[in-house]
């Protein structure tokens, strides 16, 4: 698996986009619920954010050279944990939400400690099996998960500050939108810091050359497990938000096909960056899928989705996702520079 990573280069956004542009862009995003109250637009954006977090988790695991085909299992775990704690056990929302990610992370830790010993393609296929196991258990453990009927999860309770209601999740979608923004921002920040830190470079090192990394005294499995666990925690939060946004979770929601979609989002978006790539990928591909699902003919949606992804992969420059295309556009067209060749990270 390691030779995927020969062409990865980390993007230095600081040189590409001035800070003011980034600031303005963030303010514009934050103001979206002010401009529009359209339910369809907002819910599409919220779902995009949720998938973006899941795709970031996939990218982090891929950074260590492991190709996980079971990321949606962690969304299901987080979603079920939160739904069971609130709806079945009657606990308040915020603690259960916090616990949900930890549950999913704990399971990722346990599974990772067992499974990451094998690594490579075996890891992919075992995570694929893990996804199926989670789905089957959710389907069969009737007393806890209510089987195929699913669990109805309530919306988060209104936040009351100083006597009057500050945020009401039932009134509009805007609170969910800001909730999603917070989740994406926290995840993005954590992953970005990981990517910049020694830990992130170690991840990349274990993928680039496992043998050399091991000879440098890096215990490969430790770092693989760390990446898998961190990804599990945040993917779990994404699943919990998904559950409380749609207010229902059934075993059908998260399966192999969702895992494959997460993977496609991450890779088409660009695996060179831990944050930008997944966000770009999920914005484009989720909206493509959503747009296509309005077509009435059965089958046309998945046919067009698959074909578009194949064509995109065929015409992408080697080793670059869509996020790198933006970089090239910026440098060649806007700055009119010669081809920008970022330095290979020296470590």
């Amino acid at each position: 698996m390691r030779y995927f990573f020969k062409t990865i280069h980390l993007i230095d956004y600081k040189n590409i986009v001035p800070k003011t542009v980034i600031g303005l862009f963030i303010i514009l995003i934050l103001l979206i619920p002010v401009f529009t109250r359209n339910v369809v637009t907002l819910s599409t954006l919220i779902m995009t954010g949720i998938w973006a977090v899941a795709a970031m988790g996939f990218t982090l695991v891929l950074r260590t050279g492991q190709f996980s085909l079971g990321q949606s299992a962690f969304m299901a775990l987080g979603g079920y944990a939160s739904a069971i704690l609130t709806a079945q056990m009657g606990l308040p929302f915020w603690p259960s939400f916090l616990v949900s990610g930890l549950v999913s992370g704990l399971i990722a830790l346990l599974v990772g400690m067992v499974v990451l010993r094998v690594g490579g393609i075996y890891f992919s296929i075992i995570t694929l099996a893990l996804g199926e196991i989670v789905r089957i258990i959710a389907l069969q453990w009737e007393p806890l998960t209510r089987g195929s009927r699913g669990i109805i999860a309530s919306a988060p309770p209104p936040i009351i500050l100083g006597g009057h209601e500050l945020v009401n999740f039932n009134a509009s979608l805007a609170p969910y939108f800001y909730f999603m923004i917070c989740l994406v921002a926290v995840t993005g920040l954590v992953f970005w810091r990981i990517g910049e830190s020694r830990l992130g470079r170690t991840f990349a090192g274990t993928a680039l050359n496992p043998v050399l990394a091991e000879h440098q005294g890096i215990y490969l499995m430790k770092y693989r497990v760390i990446a898998f666990t961190v990804a599990g925690v945040f993917t779990g939060y994404a699943g919990a938000l998904y559950t409380h946004f749609l207010q229902v979770i059934t075993p059908m929601v998260f399966g192999l096909w969702q895992s494959i979609q997460i993977m496609i989002m991450s890779i088409v978006g660009g695996i060179g960056s831990l944050v930008g790539g997944p966000i770009v990928g999920s914005i484009l591909l989720y909206n493509l899928g959503e747009y296509l699902s309005r077509l009435d003919t059965p089958g046309l949606q998945s046919f067009l989705f698959g074909s578009v992804v194949v064509i995109v992969v065929m015409f992408l420059p080697q080793g670059a996702g869509l996020v790198n295309l933006w970089e090239r556009f910026w440098n060649k067209v806007v700055w009119r520079e010669e081809e920008y060749e970022p330095d290979e990270p020296e470590d």
Partner: peptide, 8 residues
């Protein structure tokens, strides 16, 4: 992705 395309 071809899985989706062929099934579709």
């Amino acid at each position: 992705a071809l899985i989706f395309a062929l099934e579709g």
